[in-house]
């Protein structure tokens, strides 16, 4: 059972200091999401994120994860906006009683382009950065350990929750519950899965908190790292350049375009 998003590869991208990767992704997001035109996020996805994904040697997994994350959103946004965009006057096609609106289509395209950048950049970071490294890098740069842990462990808990959901599904299936088949059957089967999943997760919270305490998590000392984590002057300079450049670009996009 896979319990983490991280994929170990021997790529140059993987050897970068985690904060550098975080800044690259945040800078791209800032520039892409501040732009009024949807062409900018789409272009950034193609000319920045995609090459970085290829450099990180995670193209197949990234494409798969992006499709899983994005497709349900994209389909629902496209349907809702083209059918029900408020105040739309131009329709380009009619399907039975429904008219598909041009304004809605453009809005949906813009939203999907931004979602694509958001999901693509986020997945690049998630799939190529060791969670403990990110946690330690954030702590090294002054983020309180509790916040750094929450940020990282919350993401890492997702695959663990998936595994727990699968074992609950197996148990319910063994008791005769139908959770496969038509859409309606699956929706009906979801309720007996959700209740034990949420309740068991909640009941674990206290024990998890105690377990962290038992491992000196609340110790008020400078933490160290088991894995060597090397930051360089060059990367630090690149990070500052990226931050400044992204702010200037984003401001220009907002003010000029």
């Amino acid at each position: 059972m896979k319990r983490s998003f991280f994929l170990l590869r021997s790529s140059g991208w993987h050897t970068l200091y985690p904060l550098t990767k975080l800044v690259v992704v945040m800078a791209v997001l800032l520039v892409g999401l501040a732009a009024p035109s949807p062409i900018v996020p789409l272009a950034l996805c193609v000319i920045v994120i995609l090459p970085l994904v290829a450099w990180a040697q995670i193209l197949r997994e990234w494409l798969r994860a992006s499709a899983i994350v994005l497709l349900p959103f994209a389909i629902s946004v496209l349907l809702i906006q083209t059918l029900f965009f408020p105040g739309a006057t131009h329709s380009f096609m009619s399907v039975g009683p429904f008219a598909l609106k041009e304004e809605g289509l453009f809005f949906a395209f813009g939203t999907i382009a931004r979602l694509l950048l958001l999901a693509g950049a986020g997945l690049l970071l998630l799939l190529s950065t060791h969670p403990a490294d990110m946690m330690h890098a954030l702590e090294q740069h002054g983020l309180p350990p509790a916040l750094a842990y929450i940020a990282v462990a919350a993401l890492e808990l997702v695959p663990q929750m998936q595994a727990r959901a699968e074992s609950i599904a197996d148990a319910q299936r063994a008791r005769g519950l139908e959770i496969e088949g038509s859409f309606l059957t699956r929706v009906r089967g979801l309720v007996p899965l959700l209740a034990p999943l949420v309740l068991s997760a909640l009941s674990d919270v206290d024990e998890r908190a105690m377990a962290l305490e038992a491992r000196a998590f609340s110790a008020r000392r400078a933490k160290t790292s088991f894995k060597p984590l090397v930051d360089t002057k060059r990367q630090s300079v690149i990070r500052w350049c990226l931050v400044c450049g992204a702010i200037v670009f984003a401001a220009a996009e907002v003010l000029i375009l």
Partner: peptide, 17 residues
């Protein structure tokens, strides 16, 4: 911890703290 990927890293978590 949920934030470590190997047995050795997990064992080291308390010492890091």
């Amino acid at each position: 911890s949920g934030a470590k990927l190997t047995v050795a890293e997990e064992a080291a978590f308390g010492l890091e703290n």
